[in-house]
């Protein structure tokens, strides 16, 4: 078994969804999460607060700095993620397809380094 990160990416250009859409998404993601747990593939998952709440810390210089805002100025940002167990990439991609349909966003799949 390998652990995979299934990350959901949003864009600042995305339109704000209606309450109805948001409620539906919560319900769909809840059902998907249950399915992952029942299959014994669940490690961890979570949705993140908006990118405007991000703070960046950099302790690589002489003195640590704390800055308001995301690390990257890119338009795309991490919105949430799952960490799952899967036998191989095909299984991880299958979960990602269902996860993407549930949360209504594209999902990036990356294996964790086992070391």
């Amino acid at each position: 078994m390998t652990q995979y990160l299934l990350s959901v990416h949003g864009s600042v250009d995305d339109e704000t969804p209606t309450d109805e859409v948001v409620q539906q998404m919560y319900a769909d993601v809840g059902r998907f999460n249950d399915k992952v747990r029942e299959a014994g593939k669940w490690v961890f998952a979570g949705g993140l607060e908006p990118i405007t709440t991000a703070t960046t810390v950099d302790a690589t210089g002489e003195r640590p700095t704390v800055t308001d805002g995301p690390y990257s100025e890119a338009k795309e940002f991490l919105g949430g993620f799952w960490v799952i167990e899967a036998a191989d990439l095909d299984e991880a991609l299958q979960w990602a397809k269902e996860g993407s349909a549930a949360c209504g966003g594209p999902v990036e799949v990356r294996p964790f380094n086992p070391a």
Binding site: T2, A87, D88, L89, D90, V109, R110, P111, N113
Partner: peptide
């Protein structure tokens, strides 16, 4: 190797 792309014939769905 690292993403573990499997070495098999895909299932009937795929």
């Amino acid at each position: 190797a690292t993403a573990r792309i499997p070495y098999r014939v895909p299932g009937p769905d795929d």
